[in-house]
């Protein structure tokens, strides 16, 4: 009985020493944590920031969005709302009238132009469904990581205004 308990104690002590060895081995290893405000992580590849509009190739002030509303419909959190100018009525009517015979006619229809594209980032769950559902590839993730604010209002973002602001800044930098 006594022998058993002594043996148990010795084995237990030994297990502590083995654990201690692991700890001391790791103690002399280099630091693996990043001290955030003073350092930051190297790569944020794949990080999904809030969504942003992709600028048009020809005109960086305009987005590729064709205002089809498919992202608005799919968003589970209902956090996208967009406004677009209605295509000119006359053109649309003409298109509709011709459309019965000629399939190409609706192409004449004036394209709706995006007026505003508001993202309520407070409710966004970063699921990426909007990006995937967009037929014209007009959405992508931004790499804004270090977002912080004092009020909810700061995260209701007009993405079109943001795009134009970025284009302006870029233009100023280039010119």
């Amino acid at each position: 009985m006594i022998v058993k308990s002594i043996r148990e104690t010795v084995a237990g002590m030994w297990s502590l020493l083995v654990g201690m060895k692991v700890t001391s081995k790791n103690f002399i290893q280099p630091n693996i944590t990043v001290h955030y405000p003073r350092q930051s992580v190297k790569s944020l590849e794949g990080y999904r920031g809030h969504i942003e509009l992709v600028p048009n190739e020809d005109d960086p002030f305009k987005s590729k969005c064709i205002a089809c509303n498919s992202c608005v419909r799919i968003c589970p959190s209902a956090c996208i709302s967009l406004k677009a100018s209605k295509p000119k009525k006359a053109a649309a009517k003409e298109g509709a009238a011709d459309g019965a015979e000629d399939k190409k006619a609706p192409a004449k229809k004036a394209k709706p132009e995006l007026l505003s594209f508001v993202l309520d980032y407070n409710y966004c769950c970063l699921c990426g469904l909007c990006v995937q559902s967009c037929p014209s590839g007009a959405l992508r993730y931004s790499s804004d990581v270090y977002l912080a604010g004092f009020s909810r209002q700061e995260f209701v973002i007009d993405l079109l205004a943001r795009l134009q602001y970025q284009a302006q800044k870029k233009g100023a930098a280039n010119g």
Partner: peptide
């Protein structure tokens, strides 16, 4: 292996 040494075998 390290987890085993450090924790699993630990008698506490």
């Amino acid at each position: 292996k390290m987890y085993k040494d450090l924790v699993t075998d630990n008698f506490i």
